[in-house]
Amino acid sequence: MPVLEVSDLHAGYGRSDVLHGLSFSVEDGGITTVLGANGAGKTTLLRALCGLLPVRGSIVLAGTQIAGRPTEAIVRLGVAHVPDGRGTFLNLSTEENLRVGAITRRDRAEVARDFERIYAYFPRLKERRHQQAGTLSGGEQQMLAISRALMLRPRLLLLDEPSFGLAPLVVQDIFRIMRTINAEQKVSMLLVEQNASLALDLANTAYLLETGRVVMSGPAQELRRADNVRQAYLGY
């Protein structure tokens, strides 16, 4: 059963739509990826899902219609967004950033345990927990952004290009940990990526987005073998 079901989604900026009637779903506990070139509408899609943009259409999260609800309400229903540019609170410390992530939660003991879990996944963050987040490296800030989102205990994690601007080794590291988190924490993930190869390795299901429309979908391994995906996005 899907955790997220989107049908006929339209969204955009001002009067011009970027998404023209998108339909797709995210399997519960799985990793779904949406691939597409620059300007295909990937970032717009994630922003629309968490209510940062006005939308038309239907977005159902675990049986609840969330289209048109304010962002705060959607987040409180368990949708965490790791935005492009990472959205780090640069003047707060690493630990305070994580505390902001958990700010809607009341289960203090569980929050404390989640801190330990996060620090186990990303020991670097533990080392730097009292450091101002603005002084962290790009990779560390990406780890922090993912961790901050996880502190919400989300059902669904939206990830906007986590590989962007990072060194290949760091990216591999982060993607490996994301796989572990998905397996251990049972968090469903919707991953948007330009790096198609990485994304298809990680994901179970994939959608291909072109100018605001889904043009192809299927299991990640199938898309990897498709000729047009190979030529346009994998480069061989």
Binding site: T71, E72, V75, P83, G87, T88, V100, I103, L152
Partner: peptide, 8 residues
């Protein structure tokens, strides 16, 4: 924006 995304 980030604050809103944390549910604030």
């Amino acid at each position: 924006v980030s604050a809103r995304l944390a549910g604030i």
